[in-house]
Simulated scan of single mutants.
Amino acid sequence: MRSLIKPISVVIALCSTMAVKADTVSELEQLVNKWLQIENQNTELNTHWLEQKSSMEQTLTLLNAEQQQLSELNQRRKKSTSELAQKREQLVTQQSELENAQQQLNDQLARISGQLLSLQVQLPPPLLSSWKNAGDLSDSKLSTTDKLQTALKMLTLLNDFQQRISIHEMAIKHPDGQEVWVKQLYLGAAQAWFVSEDLSYVGIGFPSDLGWQWEFDSSINAEQVALGIAVQQKKRAADWVTLPILSYVNKNQQGAK
């Protein structure tokens, strides 16, 4: 009985050892498989990371370039804003200067217009007619430019009239009420003489506070007035002409050649 029991024990021990080895191999295979899976995952992660890294680097490069462009654009915008502000300030200054100049011009034009309008009543009839044709400074609808041009025309007409001796004809009213046609000899805009064709009427013209005045005066030599007109019209040779001058201030008559 004893001899039979021992072999059986050995067989059991061998079987147990084989079973242990089989479990160990299975575990090793599982470990190897897991290791292989981990390696594969690690390889995939590295590959994915490399792909992501390249994409992120490209994205970062683009972002840096865009940031640089935005920075340059912002600098240009700041510079442009600064230049624009400077130009705006210059324009505001220029506009203020123009407005001041315009106001000064308007003030001067208003003063000149007032002087011309007050002078208008004292002008000799031919010059007054020319002024009326030049324009009406009292018209409130006239623009500043139109008023300035009208004032310049009037001043030019006045200066031209003052620089020459001129001859005109018109009817003037005699104190007895009748209209007398006469020729007039103007010495600028401050003095004039008149005479009728038959030399029966003669007189003098002058400006006053009441306007331009005509005065019949038989004491004036009608032939001298007619001679002066004829010389001026080149109908007679140049000659000495003696005519009276009536002072605007005191209206005293005195001889003049």
Results as ranks from 00 to 15, higher is better:
P125T: 01
S140I: 08
S218E: 12
A230F: 10
Q233A: 11
G205K: 04
L158I: 07
L84K: 01
N100L: 10
V180L: 01
N133I: 04
S26D: 11
T144F: 06
T59W: 12
G255L: 12
T59H: 14
A151Y: 07
A13G: 12
L105D: 03
E44G: 13
D23I: 15
L187T: 01
L152G: 04
Q30M: 15
A151F: 03
A134Y: 08
M18A: 07
A189H: 14
A101R: 15
T150H: 05
I229K: 04
V231T: 09
H168K: 00
A189K: 11
L50C: 04
Q162M: 03
N64W: 03
I12P: 01
E99I: 15
E57A: 05
Q253H: 13
D160G: 00
D160E: 12
S113H: 10
A189L: 07
Q75D: 09
S218V: 06
T17W: 14
L142Y: 00
E179H: 01
D176S: 05
V92R: 15
W49K: 14
Q184H: 03
S130V: 02
S196L: 03
L210P: 02
L31G: 13
I12S: 02
W214A: 07
A19C: 03
L73N: 14
P125G: 02
E29Y: 13
A65Y: 03
L28P: 03
L117D: 12
A134H: 07
C15Q: 09
S26W: 07
K34Y: 15
A190R: 11
Q162Y: 09
K173I: 00
K235F: 01
L116R: 10
I172T: 05
L62K: 12
A151T: 06
M18N: 07
S219T: 15
K78T: 11
K251R: 10
S200D: 09
E197L: 09
P7I: 11
N106C: 06
S80N: 15
L227H: 08
L14T: 12
N159A: 08
L31K: 05
L119G: 08
Q178G: 02
V121H: 09
L243T: 05
Q191P: 00
Q184T: 01
L127C: 02
V10M: 05
K235E: 06
S138G: 11
